[in-house]
Computed example of a mutant assay.
Amino acid sequence: MTASDLSAALHAGRQVFGTLIVSPSPRWPEVVRGCGLDFVFIDTEHIALDRAELSWMCQTYSALGLPPLVRIPAPDPYAATMVLDGGAAGVIAPYVETVEQVQALRGAVKLRPIKGQRLQQMLEGGTPEAELSNYMQQGAANRLLIVNIESVPAIAALDEILRVPGLDAVLIGPHDLSCSLGIPEQWDHPEFLAACETIFRKARAAGIGAGIHFWGDVTQQVRFLKLGASMLIHSADISLFQKHLRLELEAIRQTAGIAADASASTTALI
Rank of each mutant, 00 (worst) to 15 (best):
G107K: 12
K110R: 15
A93N: 09
Q120T: 11
R106W: 14
E97W: 03
A88I: 02
P68F: 01
G65D: 07
R106N: 10
Q117A: 13
L84N: 05
Q117H: 11
V70D: 01
K115R: 13
Q121K: 13
R106T: 12
A89T: 02
G90A: 14
P68T: 10
S62A: 14
L84M: 10
T60Q: 04
T81S: 11
L119T: 15
L69N: 00
P67R: 00
L66D: 01
V102H: 06
K110L: 09
P77S: 10
V91D: 13
I72D: 07
L64V: 07
M82G: 04
G125D: 09
Y95P: 00
Y78P: 00
G116H: 11
Y78V: 11
R71M: 07
G86L: 11
D85P: 02
P77G: 13
T98A: 04
C58V: 05
R106Q: 10
I72S: 04
G87N: 05
V70T: 06
I92R: 03
L119P: 15
I72M: 07
I92N: 06
P113A: 05
P73E: 06
A104V: 12
V99A: 04
A108E: 13
A74Q: 08
A108Q: 13
K115F: 07
R106V: 07
P67Y: 10
G107L: 12
L105H: 06
I92E: 03
Q117G: 14
G87T: 04
E100N: 07
G86D: 07
Q117N: 11
V96G: 01
M82W: 15
A63F: 02
T60C: 08
Q101T: 11
A88Q: 11
E124C: 12
G87M: 04
P75K: 01
P67A: 05
V83R: 10
L119R: 08
P75G: 10
A89K: 00
V83Q: 00
E100R: 05
K115M: 14
P94M: 04
I92M: 08
